[in-house]
Write a protein that binds this DNA or RNA. Structure first.
Length: 975
RNA sequence: GGGCGCUUAGCUCAGUUGGCUAGAGCACCAGCUCGACACGCUGGGGGUCACAGGUUCAAGUCCUGUAGCGCCCACCA
């Protein structure tokens, strides 16, 4: 029986067939199995802000490679999928869409309606994201799919908040936060990016009270002067010493403010050496204000406009107010000078608007002890980072132990489980909640109110008709729920079997930009809630950059949909190519082109293409420069019209993977064509012919290497090992060598070795290219269900559940490798000669081989290989120490061997002579170098013996070759 | 300002503890319809490993400095 395969591998068919098969057979599902060790991974839940891009594809691919590898190794393997509600980001996307499409803001809709909208958005993108993961081939346990805002996560969030609050680790405080006036929420420090802005440095005159003099102050933020409550100078500054303690009149506001001395805030050499102090609107001034107990005047509304403290400027936007204030100060002759000045202004990462330092009520997690515990986990090696250098990022950040601002003024997220009451007493609370362990409270002296946290929602009348109970309107930082992900997905706070069996998870695979935001916080909450780290190892993979070297992101619009790549090259090509690019040091730059759907011509993607947006409801088009037809570009910024042809994004980087999958497909096709009459039979590796012992030796080495490389997260090296073995050794040499044996009557042994080695190779490749390997596996099962190296056995129905190969170390065969290497050298040399003198493909040549007596037998044995691979006939009479060079030959030399190929009529002797001269020059240079080394006693004494010996051996080889060439040259010049 | 990383063939990148006669894919040149594969086969050209010093018998690999690029962190009016 034989199996027919198409000439080219069809990825789409295999994908459709096998993914559903794997899923319906339940291979992805995992549950506690006491007989096996667990291997568990939780996915970094992608934000539901939009579709996945290539960065996610890489993340998913690497996890799936590990998961499939471990599953094959016999672990009870669990990969939990899910998505993140991504508070600010998602709400911002929906609000933006609302504004663009309906010209409404969130207040027009109201809280419930907006949240409903976001749920719809979430449903849409969640299913799209999960589908993308499936297309990539991710073998997640879909029965356990989770969402950071689902009921189980909500319970974990509530429980965590409650105990942190009870333990005094959560508090409310007034803090200067990064206010995003556009989104009207505080954003974390980590969500602020600093951008250089060409601004100005204004120098103003502030009149000194009861004097005709003034003091000069410089600022980059003129409008904040409305909130100035002091002017600071350096205590040692002779220019201003006399003014300390006196007052100046704040222009426009006509407010008297003190001149204070502050050596921390003031740098004498900067500007005029005098600084206006605005404690409510600048982090440094805030610190200064605290030191000097200055009043803090907030001059801004939440939307960034000036409030009632701004007097006549009330209602103006902050930048409008700036202009007006400068004009008015000019009127008052208070402007000394204006200089161009470049400053760094914090921008909200989400909305891209400049943030305002803003005094606001926020909730914080006290980090000191928590951060320390997470630092210890890494310093003592309980949690390992790969590559190691990222431990520094992690530790540096945690060591600052800055309290974590966890409140967000948003509607989309986990609502803060805090209720306020200003009217009740503690005895009221005690009476009502008795000794319930599900409610806890403390008193806020500043605000004169009780802060009550509860595990269960409290109704407004929970304290009876006499007391008003208000719930905090805000929600928690997204990272608060993400931080619980490894244990909340396994059932915490319940003490579940899953938690017991799968926690801590084995490895977290993520990208470096969330080491602090996410990884560190998972360690913190894992240790706090479960008393155990969340994962043993963290693998940090590179980032995918666009053609311009910028990271792919949803807001930038430069994300490439992996489904484009899959459509063009197939999922295996996507995976193999991505893994191939995943080295330890480098980010991955990925230039892409739009492929015209009409004629296939390519348009390289530029920044301008990434910026294409829907304008007035019209979706952008591109016009093909070749066929002049229109098409819509594939873009993360909009969904294409259904009836419009789409130009998908393609990249030649994925041809590597596609070609490789196809190569494997065709090698298998060849092999399957030659398995007619296959009958399984045992054999001994040590008794196999040279080429078999050689390929099994190489395969053994390959297997050991790939296993080790995967254990070390060296994805690129693993793919290179497999690529080189499959293509350069298995296909280029082994398959070519054994072709004649497959034509003979006693083909059975060759068939068995072939089936057994393909079997191993497929299993090694499966984690990387699951579809093509599963497809071939299935066909191989049809003709050779029983197969194996040395002893055949029945193989599993599907490769996904096959066992990871283990090859005995004794199958490494150094002699076979040396012998075969010698044949490869001879073949290459003969081919080179054939190419140089353009010997026609069909023309056979003969080979005269001068070599030692000892080499004769195995060279005779290998003459068939020379015949097959180089079309060179090695006659018994033309081999041995006595062989002389016939006339009109091209020749090659190897250490201890010279080969001559008679080419009368074809050869250009002058070219041959020149060639040999070049060879000699090269070898002479090497000999000279080696002699120089060896005559240096420092070298022979200090270098390791093995290195010195290697030099000596090579020198000896080179000298032998040189002697041969010299003789050759003499002969060449004489005939 | 601090930290991390990068600079190797035309392009995109490998190169693990110093032993290298510096590799791969793509592109390039020449030749191949030889029944697995043109998403292929065979052969070939192409690099003073950013620059300048240093350590060493030996440096792409280690150290110092310079230049450029990228990312992260940071309070400079």
């Amino acid at each position: 029986m034989s199996v027919e395969l198409s000439k080219q591998f069809n990825p789409a068919e295999a994908q459709k067939r096998w993914y559903t098969h794997w899923e319906s057979e339940g291979y992805f599902h995992s549950q506690k199995n006491p007989d096996r060790d667990a291997f568990s991974v939780v996915i970094p839940p992608p934000n539901v802000t939009g579709a996945l891009h290539m960065g996610h594809a890489l993340n998913g691919t690497l996890q799936d490679i590990l998961v499939r590898f471990k599953r094959m190794q016999g672990f009870e393997t669990l990969w939990i999928p899910g998505t993140d509600h991504a508070g600010i980001a998602t709400q911002a996307m929906v609000e933006k869409r609302l504004r663009e499409e309906e010209n409404k803001n969130r207040h027009d809709l109201g809280r419930d309606a907006l949240v409903n909208r976001i749920w719809q958005w979430k449903d849409h993108y969640e299913s799209r994201i999960l589908n993308q993961l499936k297309q990539i081939g991710c073998s997640c346990d879909w029965q356990r799919t989770r969402f950071t805002l689902d009921d189980d996560c909500a319970r974990a969030v509530r429980e965590t908040f409650f105990s942190l609050f009870r333990d005094g680790l959560i508090y409310r405080g007034k803090r200067l936060v990064n206010w995003d006036p556009h989104l009207q929420t505080a954003v974390a420090d980590d969500e602020v990016t600093h951008e250089k802005i060409e601004g100005s440095l204004w120098t103003f005159r502030y009149p000194i009270a009861d004097s005709k003099n003034h003091i000069l102050i410089s600022t980059t933020r003129p409008e904040t002067m409305l909130g100035d409550t002091a002017v600071a100078v350096h205590p040692e500054d002779e220019r201003y010493k006399h003014l300390i303690g006196s007052h100046v009149i704040l222009p426009l506001q006509n407010r008297s403010i003190p001149v204070i001395a502050d050596p921390i805030l003031v740098k004498r050499e900067f500007g005029t050496g005098a600084v206006k102090v605005t404690p409510a609107h600048d982090p440094n001034d805030y610190q200064c204000g605290q030191r000097h107990h200055l009043p803090m005047i907030n001059i801004l509304n939440t939307d960034g406009s000036i409030n009632e403290q701004g007097g006549p400027y009330q209602g103006l936007d902050r930048y409008e107010a700036r202009k007006q204030i400068i004009e008015d100060l000019k009127e008052l002759d208070c402007v000394e000078k204006i200089e161009p000045y470049e400053t760094e202004v914090g921008h909200s990462d989400r909305s891209k608007t400049p943030i305002e330092p803003y005094l606001s009520d926020e909730w914080f997690v006290r980090m000191s002890d928590l951060a320390q515990s997470a630092m210890d986990a890494v310093t003592n090696g309980t949690v390992e980072l790969f590559p190691e250098r990222y431990a520094k990022t992690y530790l540096d950040w945690l060591s600052e132990k800055r309290d974590w601002c966890i409140s967000r003024h948003l509607w989309w997220g986990h609502r803060i489980p805090i209720w306020y009451c200003s009217t009740c007493t503690e005895s009221d609370l005690k009476k009502i909640f008795k000794d319930s362990s599900r409610v806890t409270w403390n008193y806020d002296e500043n605000k004169k109110q009780w802060l009550i946290s509860s595990l269960d929602d409290l109704s407004p009348d929970a304290l009876g008709p006499d007391h008003k109970l208000d719930r905090d309107p805000d929600v928690l930082d997204t990272w608060f729920s993400s931080a619980l992900w490894p244990h909340s997905t396994l059932g915490w706070p319940d003490n579940t079997d899953d938690l017991d069996y799968y926690y801590p998870t084995n490895v977290l695979v993520t990208s470096r930009d969330i080491i602090t935001l996410w990884v560190a916080r998972m360690v913190i909450t894992g240790l706090y809630n479960c008393k155990q780290i969340p994962f043993h190892q963290v693998y940090i993979h590179p980032k995918i950059l666009d053609g311009q070297g910028r990271t792919m992101s949803k807001t930038r619009g430069n994300g490439v949909d992996p489904l484009n790549i899959i459509q063009k090259y197939g999922p295996d090509a996507l995976r193999f190519s991505l893994a191939h690019l995943t080295t330890e040091q480098q980010d991955v730059r990925l230039p892409v082109s739009y492929e015209c759907p009409h004629c296939g011509s390519l348009l390289p993607q530029q920044s301008e293409h990434q910026e294409l947006r829907v304008i007035n409801g019209r979706k952008p088009y591109l016009n093909c420069s070749k066929c002049k037809e229109d098409y819509q570009p594939s873009s993360p910024n909009f969904d294409p019209d259904p009836d419009m042809p789409i130009g998908i994004l393609v990249s030649e980087r994925f041809e590597l993977g596609r070609n490789f999958a196809n190569k494997l497909w065709n090698a298998s096709r060849f092999l399957l064509m030659n398995l007619e009459n296959y009958t399984p039979e045992p054999f001994l590796v040590s008794e196999l012919p040279l080429e078999d012992r050689w390929i099994l030796s190489r395969l053994t080495e390959c297997c050991h290497q790939v296993t080790e490389q995967l254990d070390q997260y060296r994805f690129s090296e693993a793919t290179r090992t497999l690529y080189d073995f499959t293509w350069n050794e298995f296909c280029d040499w082994y398959l070519e060598i054994i072709k004649p044996r497959l034509q003979q009557d006693d083909q059975s042994l060759a068939q068995n070795v072939l089936a057994g080695s393909l079997d191993v190779l497929l299993r090694l490749l499966h984690p990387f290219i699951p579809y093509v390997t599963e497809e071939i596996w299935n066909r191989l099962n049809q003709v050779a269900k029983q197969r194996g190296l040395e002893s055949p056995f029945d193989h599993s129905e599907a490769i996904i559940i096959a066992s990871w190969p283990q090859m005995p170390a004794e199958w490494r065969d150094q002699q076979a490798e040396t012998d075969l290497f010698r044949i490869q050298e001879m073949v290459t040399n003969i081919r080179n000669i054939r190419a140089r003198f353009q010997v026609p493909q069909q023309t056979k040549v003969s080979l005269h081989l001068r070599c030692s007596q000892a080499d004769i037998p195995h060279l005779i044995q290998s003459s068939g290989h020379l015949e097959k691979l180089a079309r060179a006939t090695l006659n018994r009479d033309h081999i041995g120490p006595e062989v002389t060079r016939p006339t009109a030959t091209a020749s090659f030399t190897l250490p201890g061997m010279e080969g001559h190929v008679p080419l009368s009529g074809l050869i250009d002797l002058e070219a041959e002579r020149k060639r040999q001269e070049e060879q000699k020059t090269k070898i002479d240079a090497r000999i000279q170098g080696a002699n120089k080394k060896l005559s240096n006693p420092n070298y022979t004494n200090k270098a390791p013996q093995s290195v010195v010996q290697q030099t000596r051996d090579r020198l000896a080889d080179d000298e032998k070759q040189r002697d041969i060439i010299i003789t050759l040259l003499e002969q060449l010049s004489s005939n």
